[in-house]
Design a protein around this nucleic acid. Structure first.
Length: 433
RNA sequence: UGGCCCGUGGUCCAAUUGGUAGGACACUGCACUGUUAAUGCAGACGGUGGAGGUUCGAAUCCUCCCGGGCCAGCCA
């Protein structure tokens, strides 16, 4: 008897198969039972008749939700069954029966966010959550495939770092033996600038940590970031890379996870338009658009979530805003040669109010200017000595960006909060489970 | 960190603006051969986040604490 996954039962119509999974729900209708089994790949309705199979009927009757079981039966096409196929149960082996005295806590009804997050380890079994995690995995797969196909080499950056890349107030501090304090990385960028000078085109992908006291639907204290960096690349090159990367991720998910997108209720028509070229507007143009929309924004202000939503809602695909004022951007960004008060940088804003999914720039490649900026920002020259070395030995113009995975996946899925798109979210007031 | 809002059985919500805290789901039993978060009937269970205060009387009003949500700042 072949052991099959539920997402593939269609290939076994008319045959007997075995499914290893859990009881998702059980409906009784007299001498008929309608169990719904899930195995992580999907759900399938079974049917058992007391008249035809009293053994299986008795074994299944009263079985509790989420009890684990191994089921054997015949796959029949049936329009009355959700999913189109139904399993005529021949035999059921209960692996673990959940006692009625301590039932599975997650109901098929509605729950509040606090309860669900407290039970995240169980919540993820529900079809919607499982679908989201599969979409996340597909997005990661697509992103890595794309970077590899463009000649970028994965070079992992360290999680422990001796200093910040943008001040220490938002860093998690840890004791590091006799070396004193170390910090959890908030970006791999500085390190991949080194590997880019070694290998040309590189990227890193992993978790980063921000001790920001943010508690909004767009923030986690631990999230995953994909960061490409390329030697000899200028701003326009990485903007083009960014739009190609994002459209590839979206179209790959649409192509391979259509079923999961349907489970989460995402309108695919809003994703199919996400193809290059993405609109590009300068910071100056953005300010003009916002002022025209009645926003109280002056040149030199950074944009808040509200402003980002106004800008992004004008387009059916992500928009790239470039050339922000140097003063409101990070110390390592290269100023525009013709207008030094503008930085060679860009942000990519996702549609529908999902906010910034990419932030990137051309990096300062001149030693003297970088040293000046490090001093201006009160950063440790000693800690950044190795970073300055990159400008002493064969420095070249180079550029890169960081893509926030959870914001991107939340936008693709259309979830209201990014906590749903990571298996175990870490937030300001939540570290359990 | 600031602003606003919310804490009522295991879960999701009511309680006519201070007057006996109730329903649904979940759980148990019975019925039902096509259920789609099944339905119907019956049963059992058990709660006002915590500490003070006002009052004849507090889920309701006040203070503090704890927990949570949304927004802002900051960022991806």
């Amino acid at each position: 008897m072949p052991v099959v996954t539920i997402d593939s039962v269609g290939q076994f119509a008319g045959q007997h198969v075995t499914i290893q999974g859990w009881l998702y729900n059980l409906r009784e209708a007299g001498k008929l039972l309608f169990p719904i089994f899930r195995d992580g790949t999907g759900t399938i309705q079974g049917v058992v008749s007391a008249k035809e199979n009293s053994g299986a009927f008795e074994a299944l009757r009263g079985l509790t939700q989420e009890s684990s079981c191994i089921v054997t039966g015949k796959v029949n096409p049936d329009a009355r069954a959700p999913g189109g196929f139904e399993l005529h149960v021949a035999e059921i082996h209960v692996v673990q029966r959940i006692p009625e005295s301590d039932p599975y806590p997650i109901q098929l009804k509605e729950h509040g966010p606090d309860f669900l997050l407290e039970n995240r380890h169980l919540w993820m079994r529900t079809p919607r959550q499982a679908a989201i995690l599969r979409i996340r995995a597909q997005a990661v797969h697509a992103a890595r495939n794309f970077m590899d196909s463009q000649g970028y080499t994965l070079t992992d950056s360290p999680m422990f770092t001796p200093a910040a890349c943008e001040g220490t107030s938002t860093l998690f501090e840890v004791d590091y033996f006799d070396e004193g304090k170390a910090y959890l990385t908030q970006s791999g960028q500085l390190y991949i600038e080194a590997t880019a000078a070694a290998l040309g085109k590189v990227y890193c992908f992993g978790p980063v940590f921000r001790a920001e006291k943010s508690k909004t639907r767009r923030h986690l204290t631990e999230f995953w970031m994909l960061e490409p960096e390329a030697a000899y690349a200028e701003l326009k090159d990485v903007m083009e890379l960014g739009e190609n990367l994002v459209s590839h991720i979206v179209q790959d998910v649409v192509a391979h996870r259509a079923r999961e997108l349907e489970v989460v209720g995402r309108d695919i028509s809003k994703l199919s338009t996400v193809r290059p070229p993405f609109p590009r507007i300068s910071y100056d143009e953005a300010v003009a658009i916002l002022q025209k929309a009645g926003k109280d924004v002056k040149w030199g202000d950074d944009f808040g979530g509200d402003e980002e939503t106004v800008l992004s809602s004008q387009y059916d695909r992500p928009v790239m805003v470039h050339h922000y004022p140097t003063a409101i951007k990070a110390f390592y960004m290269q100023p525009d040669a013709e207008r030094p008060d503008r930085a060679l940088c860009f942000d990519m804003l996702a549609p529908e109010g999902y906010g910034e999914i990419i932030g990137g720039s051309q990096r300062i490649h001149e030693y003297d200017l970088l040293l000046e900026r490090i001093r201006q920002h009160g950063l440790s020259e000693k800690a950044f000595q190795w970073y300055l070395d990159l400008r002493r030995y064969g420095s070249v113009p180079h550029s890169g960006f960081g893509l926030g995975l959870e914001r991107t996946v939340a936008w693709i899925c259309g979830t209201t909060h990014i906590r749903e798109v990571i298996p175990f979210p870490r937030m300001l007031y939540r570290i359990y489970p």
